[in-house]
Amino acid sequence: MIKSIEELKQIRDKYKDVLQNREAEENKIRILVGMATCGIAAGARDTINAIVDEVHKENINNAVVVQTGCMGFCYAEPTVEVRFPGKSPVLYGKVDAERGREIVRRHVKKGEVISEWVLKG
């Protein structure tokens, strides 16, 4: 039985991120991972799961991870695009699980674009 407001708040905070995916509609940073055949063949599934895990571990609650189709950069898969609301998107190429985690820690969390991994069209 819940006996105090503190206890209730603890439960709320514990389960808060259960709803994070479902509150993705407005004003959130979107991390898009290319998950077409080319992406999957290049290991995008490991990348996306690493990114989801890192977002969770770093307690980032203003970002969601979304998969997308092929963007035409098959040679540079897995590709990851980071979109801050109101800013132009940044597209990274050849993002393996480790790069994915670093993009979360540096770009998504601290706003630092990692220019050496940015894909130039």
Partner: peptide, 26 residues
């Protein structure tokens, strides 16, 4: 359409029972 109605923790995560807790304690 947002929460799992059979899971009370999801309701609490969406600030459920917070008003009641305040009413009863404060």
């Amino acid at each position: 359409g947002k929460i799992d109605p059979e899971n009370i923790n999801e309701y609490i995560a969406a600030d459920g029972y917070m008003a009641l807790a305040r009413v009863l304690t404060e």
